[in-house]
Design a protein around this nucleic acid. Structure first.
Length: 661
RNA sequence: GCCACUGUGGCAUAGCCUGGUAGCGCGGCUGAUUCGUAAUCAGCAGGUCGAGGGUUCAAAUCCCUUCAGUGGCUCCA
């Protein structure tokens, strides 16, 4: 046992220790060494006895004590042999990075064979050690290398703060040996240039530029939201206006809430919120299936070491939840692509079956978004994403698919309660090459949309797609969030080995469309609530679509003696009907029902009982007289043929739990 | 992840600057009230002041750490 050395393993947590790119899963044929970094109050060591491999050292280096120091225990591995220069360089880079973080200028390099079971030759190791030593000295560090190949005694004190203990596998020759698509992606990103313009319905392009951080180049006039959207996308300028209104609404209406007992960005749904979520999920699922989507289900976690996934992950690292299973380290899916692609990889597909449309309501998908990016329901770490992939023979088929999915989204979002296209702004992003070759198609989409769109054109392809579009909701704080989106993927068929057999008998890679017809379900809550808030600013009563309202009809008995009648009536009426049987004045009951945005409110007393006529408060309209049958008819009309679920709470208000004050 | 701000009964908040017994409203419970279209009256209960540590005779209050939320930056496959 090592004196003063804690006996424990050194697990790495990708989320608490950022940017540990060197510990991402390593492929075969990489050159690594193992290193253990300890930020110490002091270390003292003394060489006691030579081994066969011992280097000759002067007597003054036999014994040493160093304080306020970063100690690097290191073992060089077989795989480092022949890569001495690169290994030393990689070691220096790691030491510098960690020394910078813990703010020390004093380093002890401590050769420590026990970290590895496949050690490099002594000569090779000594070369790396002293090359790194002299490089660090050149960079201005005070460096002590403990004697190589000696039995040594040592005492060390570890500071114990989060970064004081780190272990790493260090990759030598990093730049050269990284997967080529990683460096391609990085290079492409550096070279990526965006050109922005507004494309109007006649197909005219209006180039945009930033003048003093204000978007210029198009007369926006009535298109206030398009202007805000362009400003948001191009200038990234944001003015603080406080907390987004939907956050207060989601709590006050007892729909959704933060869950401090989980990880940030993971929410709880109260019965009313869960009802709405179920209805939305069901509706989107039904519509996709109605238009030929085949619903499937796939796992939520995936193996880092799976060949297809590995190359994808290397391209987009470090935004996943990582989980240790009993056997391996896996990541949680951040989209349903993985499951669907792996399924299609194994499928036998003829061109005759294309387009193939797979669909999954991925509950959940996970993204470990940065803390500062999480806001209410707009951006989460776990979310429910309707994810459709269409596998197409070629670009022509992909375009036709994109158009039919465009129409589907229109219907879906309209029925969910948004006004299309007025509530949303259209963004199109494409490579210049794709745009130029498919301008007719793109202008056709804008014509269908009926309003001008923002276009972002890339000088070359950076992402896996050549074309995508989004419908963006602009909220009360002038922030934009994408709902429906569709992407034309030219890269992943090859990566995942997805092929179909063409009429020529040969294997071909399909073009893959990625679409979410509605955007994340949570984001629909956000859009509906923000929209209601925006309407209320214009003097229009905030409300939810009838089919999503947790309570659709509320009966208010004037006295206790009418409660029985109301309960009986509630059972007979269609829709979600409840009864406010609490011992309160009518005024108070009305007020509470209005604050809950109940669409139909009915006071029930002697008059109603004797006449059979109800005075119905229709939200957003005047009171209307109706008979019971007329009321039932109105409820059915308002419900249309949207999905229905019964009341998720006791019918008597007096029996309900209050989840929030 | 970085910077700033915030955290007090279920909810919403006063007190914090300038340390000295934690206050109000809503909601809940009990009782009265049986009421006609946006808050009926009275009483009662409920708080280790987000958590942990420190300074002090004494901490909701000052300091440090941490968790959570919001805003900004970065980010958004």
């Amino acid at each position: 046992m090592i004196p003063g050395f804690p006996l424990k393993s050194f697990p790495l947590n990708y989320h608490t220790i950022p940017n540990l790119k060197y510990v991402l899963p390593l492929g075969e044929g990489r050159y690594t060494m193992k290193a253990l970094f300890i930020h110490s109050d002091f270390i003292e060591y003394e060489a006691r006895k030579k081994t066969k491999l011992a280097e000759d050292i002067s007597s003054d280096k036999m014994k040493n004590r160093v304080e306020e120091v970063l100690v690097v225990f290191i073992s060089f591995e077989k795989r480092d042999e022949g890569k001495e220069a690169d290994s030393a360089k990689a070691l220096v880079a790691n030491v510098e990075e960690i020394a910078g973080k813990v703010e020390v200028k004093r380093i002890v390099l401590y050769p420590y064979a026990h970290l590895s079971s496949s050690l490099a030759k002594a000569s090779s190791s000594i070369t790396i050690l002293h090359t790194a030593e002299s490089q660090l000295i050149e960079k201005g560090y005070e460096v002590h290398a403990s004697p190589f190949g000696w039995y040594k005694s040592f005492n060390i004190s570890c500071k114990g703060h989060p970064l004081s203990e780190l272990s790493r596998e260090i990759v030598a020759g990093e730049e050269e040996s990284k997967d080529s698509d990683v460096s391609d992606a990085v290079k492409a990103e550096e070279k990526m240039r965006s050109t922005w313009f507004v494309l109007d319905v006649e197909g005219n392009e209006h180039p945009l530029n930033l003048d003093n951080n204000v978007v210029k180049g198009y007369a926006f006039n009535d298109n206030i939201n398009l202007k805000k959207f362009c400003q948001y996308e191009m200038a990234k300028s944001r003015i603080s206006k406080g907390e987004p209104p939907h956050v207060d609404l989601m709590k006050r209406l007892e729909l959704v809430d933060y869950e401090p007992g989980s990880d940030p960005g993971n929410f709880r749904y109260y019965p009313k919120g869960k009802l709405m979520k179920s209805l939305l999920e069901r509706y989107v699922t039904d519509e996709v299936k109605r238009t030929g989507g085949m619903e499937i289900e796939s796992p939520i976690m995936y193996d880092y070491e799976h060949p297809s996934l590995k190359s994808y992950m290397n391209r987009f690292p470090a935004r996943q939840y990582t989980i240790q299973t009993p056997d391996k380290k896996v990541f949680l899916r951040f989209a349903a692509c993985f499951g669907q692609f792996l399924m299609m990889h194994d499928a036998t597909v003829s061109y005759r079956s294309l387009p193939v449309r797979l669909f999954e309501m991925s509950r959940y998908s996970f993204r470990a978004e940065q803390r500062g990016e999480l806001t209410g329901l707009r951006r989460l770490r776990s979310f429910t994403m309707p994810d459709c992939h269409s596998f197409c023979t070629d670009f022509e088929m992909a375009k036709k698919e994109a158009i039919s999915r465009f129409d589907l989204s229109w219907t879906v979002l309209q029925n969910i309660g948004l006004e299309i296209p007025n509530d949303l702004e259209f963004a199109i992003r494409a490579t210049k090459e794709y745009y130029d070759e498919n301008k007719e198609f793109i202008v056709g989409l804008v014509k269908k949309w009926g309003k001008p769109a923002l276009v972002e054109q890339w000088n070359e392809r950076f992402f896996y797609f050549v074309f995508k579009y989004e419908w963006n909701f602009v909220d009360a704080l002038d922030k934009a969030s994408a709902l429906n989106t569709d992407q034309m993927d030219v890269e992943n068929a090859e990566r995942y080995g997805i092929t179909y057999t063409g009429s020529d008998g040969e294997k071909h890679y399909p073009i893959i469309l990625h679409q979410s017809p509605s955007g994340a379900i949570e984001r629909l809550f956000y859009a509906l609530l923000e929209r209601a808030h925006l309407k209320s600013l214009q003097g229009i009563k905030a409300q939810l679509p009838f089919w999503l309202s947790p309570t659709q009809v509320r009966l208010l008995p004037v006295k206790d003696e009418f409660v029985e009648d109301c309960l009986a009536l509630a059972e007979k009426l269609p829709g979600r009907v409840d009864v406010d049987d609490r011992d309160l004045t009518v005024g108070k009951k009305i007020r509470d029902a209005e604050r809950e945005w109940v669409p139909l409110i009915i006071v029930y007393g002697d008059n109603e009982k004797s006449s059979g006529q109800f005075q119905v408060r229709v939200r957003g309209q005047d009171e209307q007289p109706m008979t019971k049958d007329e009321l039932a008819k109105v409820i059915k009309e308002m419900q249309k043929d949207m999905p229905f679920e019964p009341l998720p709470l006791p019918m008597n208000l007096s029996k309900r739990v209050i989840f929030r004050g």
